[in-house]
Simulated assay, not measured.
Amino acid sequence: MNPTSILAATLLASGLAAQSAADTLTIGTEGAYPPFNYIESDGTIAGFDVDIAMELCARLEVECDIVAQDWDGIIPGLLANKYDVIVASMFITEERKKQVDFTDPYYLAAMTHVTPKDSGITEFTNDALSGMIIGAQSGTTQADYAEATYPDADIRLYPTQDEVNLDMASGRIDLQVGDMLPMLEWTTKSEDGACCELAGEPITDPAFVGEGVGMAVRQEDDDLREKLNQALADMRADGTYLEINNKYFDIDVYTMK
């Protein structure tokens, strides 16, 4: 093959690779936060976040590649170009905005305390919970809230929400702070969660729950963020969002009504 032919083949291969990359949107999610994202028995990733992501990809006319990433590494993974978007029930907070940009919220959220049904815990102040063992998932706003609000408690942080739930059900922690919707799901629809119940008022402090839950993109990806916002608005307008919502929840989590 002469040099001109080699150069042409190289340019063609590069162009095909770029076209293939442009035709695929890689989505990062956790895979350990049901019903929002979780791993099925066959290894596939499923849940509300995943269904929303798949519909967004369809509207952007790209293939969806969903990958699982441990929560502690999920923002570093985005910044390292392991995926293009995080769709993983991430609260929009000022601290996270220092590293990534967010789309418009795709649902609202509150946090909650979870206690054993026979705990007798009714007061949620630092004095009342002093010395108690409180669990939360590490790297989350729930962990930030627990550490800031209960400095005299024994705060125990776990890599995944499932591990917090396991220790809660086993009696190794006295209570936990979690995201309200997954905790409602766990306490009302799972066998091990029957041990426990939501307690106290919903935690809605904007310092911890932020502006809602958004999709995170790299700060230079303004065009992608705008396309996602438009596709999300279209999903709300034509009823597709609510169809997905109703597979998982009894309320519209976009409005929490």
Rank of each mutant, 00 (worst) to 15 (best):
A8W: 07
T149E: 12
M111I: 02
T93D: 09
R59C: 04
K98Y: 00
I45L: 11
D72E: 12
G15V: 08
N165C: 05
Q137F: 08
E55W: 08
I74W: 07
D65Q: 15
L228S: 03
T187I: 13
N246D: 13
A109P: 02
D238H: 10
I173D: 01
E30Y: 10
T115G: 04
D144H: 13
V67M: 11
A109Y: 06
I74V: 12
I92F: 10
Y150G: 05
K257R: 13
M215D: 05
G120L: 08
A110R: 13
I203E: 05
F124H: 03
I74M: 08
I6C: 05
L242D: 12
M215V: 06
D118Y: 05
P159H: 13
Y158R: 11
C195D: 03
P116T: 00
N229G: 02
M180E: 10
D118E: 12
Y38H: 09
F48Y: 11
E95D: 14
M54I: 09
M168V: 05
D118L: 07
T188P: 00
L129Y: 00
I121F: 10
T255F: 12
D154M: 12
S130T: 11
A9T: 08
R236A: 02
E226R: 12
N245E: 07
T103D: 08
R156P: 04
L7Y: 08
L16P: 00
T140G: 04
G214L: 10
I39R: 15
L184K: 12
T44C: 04
I173H: 02
A13I: 14
S89A: 15
A53H: 08
T26P: 03
A169N: 08
G47Y: 01
V164K: 01
K247P: 00
A216I: 03
Q99I: 02
F48A: 01
D104E: 15
A146D: 03
G43F: 11
A207I: 13
D250W: 08
A88S: 14
A13D: 10
Q99H: 13
I52H: 03
A8G: 00
A22F: 11
N126E: 02
D205N: 15
L79Q: 14
T255M: 11
L242E: 15
K97Y: 09
G200R: 00
G139V: 09
R172G: 00
P116N: 03
E147Q: 14
S130K: 14
D104F: 13
Y158G: 05
L157S: 06
P206D: 04
Y33D: 01
D104C: 08
E163C: 00
G47I: 04
D252E: 04
Y254V: 00
G77E: 07
I52D: 00
R236I: 03
P76E: 07
F36Y: 13
I155Q: 04
G47E: 04
M54C: 01
K227C: 00
S130P: 07
G77S: 11
S138D: 09
D72W: 14
L157M: 10
R236G: 01
G28C: 14
